[in-house]
Design a protein around this nucleic acid. Structure first.
Lengths: 218, 218
DNA sequence: AATTCGGGTGTACATCCGTACACCCAAAGA
DNA sequence: TCTTTGGGTGTACGGATGTACACCCGAATT
């Protein structure tokens, strides 16, 4: 019985596997919501279960601990981040100046669509359980590497060393991570958001100009 | 009585004010240590009291809540950060290339001296209670502004607009914050630390080069 | 048709949590 | 000297927490 509040996973239809998957999703979503107020380490299994609408012990049918739940959320978050990168590559044209605006706009759009995932990553990157921090770091490193190979295809950068490409990629990712973190603190379409994206555009331009000169100046 | 473990605040000497101050310090230090494993929001008042060696209710003689304790730690952390900036300004010479190396070396040194403070800030910046996050943000904004006025005194940058100076300052601070966060994950003097600082040096150089060109290219 | 499987339930318990309350006693103040 | 002050103590409470255990019952398997 659903006790005294709304029970989001009430529907009893579907096969056993379908129902299990639905409950799993409900746990992931409930955790993301609860994580808007407090870090993962401050969540209790009972809070999560209550939010989902299941009894505490039922939690263990899906995850062996809150930490494992966290790892699942990390993987899920980066799946959506990679989908953003795919979208970005699809929209990328040879037009250089436009590329910056398109990148930032795509970024803003995806952060808005996946606010809770981005907030979760930002929050747990340094505050999460060791395993969660490690998983985030691994994914971030992979992301920097992927961007570096993308950058290598840009004409101006083809003569660059692998190390320099990675360093530049790292700088760009750092700036975009900072942008994402700040976007989360502004409301969509607000003037604060506009100021933020304008500043980000300026910053990326500065970086590009620096990169352009880099090769000849070393 | 000091129950069954080491009691760091046992000395009963000094005036009333001195003893109170000593206990307060012990609470701050104990919290910093406990925060190496878990975010502030996951700490209990009882854990802190136990670590200090006082009874739980005695905590309230010094702070009205864990959140207020957090605010005190934020202020303390930024005091040490500002002392780093002062040291940096003192060491700064007109020699431009050298300035970068000196800045990074000073940064590394101070992060090593205050590891727990920096780790605390990194952890609570996004995961802390609302008031703590706000305090960190305010201090960080102030920091960016201070750097911007410093930058304004550099000959190449004097003709820049206030907005552009702030944007550049922001980019630099973001890069240094990222450097500090990563330093915390490496051991002092390790090759990983060396790789990190080398990359940071390259990044700042790229930024400077970009900044140099910026004025003429706008 | 009979059996197994497995997601979900309810009860129970030891432990930890924040905090209210009454108290202690040395330093500070009169 | 007597009184006040204030940091620290110990007990006590209702409530939350993780998890062990026995159970339920419909879907899946045989």
């Amino acid at each position: 019985m659903c006790s005294d509040y709304a029970c989001p996973v009430s529907e009893a239809s579907g096969s056993r596997a379908e129902r299990k998957e639905r409950t799993r999703r409900a746990i992931l979503d409930a955790t993301l919501e609860l994580c808007e107020d407090a870090p993962l380490a401050a969540l209790s299994l009972r809070q999560v279960a209550k939010q989902v609408g299941i009894v505490p012990t039922a939690f263990y049918r899906h995850f062996e601990s809150i930490e494992q739940l966290g790892l699942a959320l990390v993987e899920e978050s980066f799946v959506s981040l990679r989908s953003m990168m795919r979208a970005l590559r699809a929209n990328a044209t040879a037009d250089f100046a436009n590329l910056i605006d398109v990148s930032i706009a795509t970024m803003v759009e995806h952060v808005r669509e996946q606010e809770m995932h981005y907030a979760f990553i930002a929050r747990e990157r340094f505050a999460g359980p060791t395993a969660v921090r490690g998983a985030i770091d691994t994914n971030l490193v992979r992301f920097v590497d992927e961007l570096a190979t993308d950058l290598a295809r840009i004409p101006v950068l083809t003569p660059w060393s692998t190390d320099d490409l990675r360093t530049l990629s790292d700088l760009i990712v750092t700036a975009f991570v900072a942008l994402a973190e700040r976007l989360l603190a502004t409301s969509p379409g607000s003037s604060a958001e506009r100021i933020l994206t304008d500043a980000a555009r300026t910053q990326v331009r500065m970086l590009i100009i620096g990169a352009r000169q880099w090769n000849s100046s070393r």
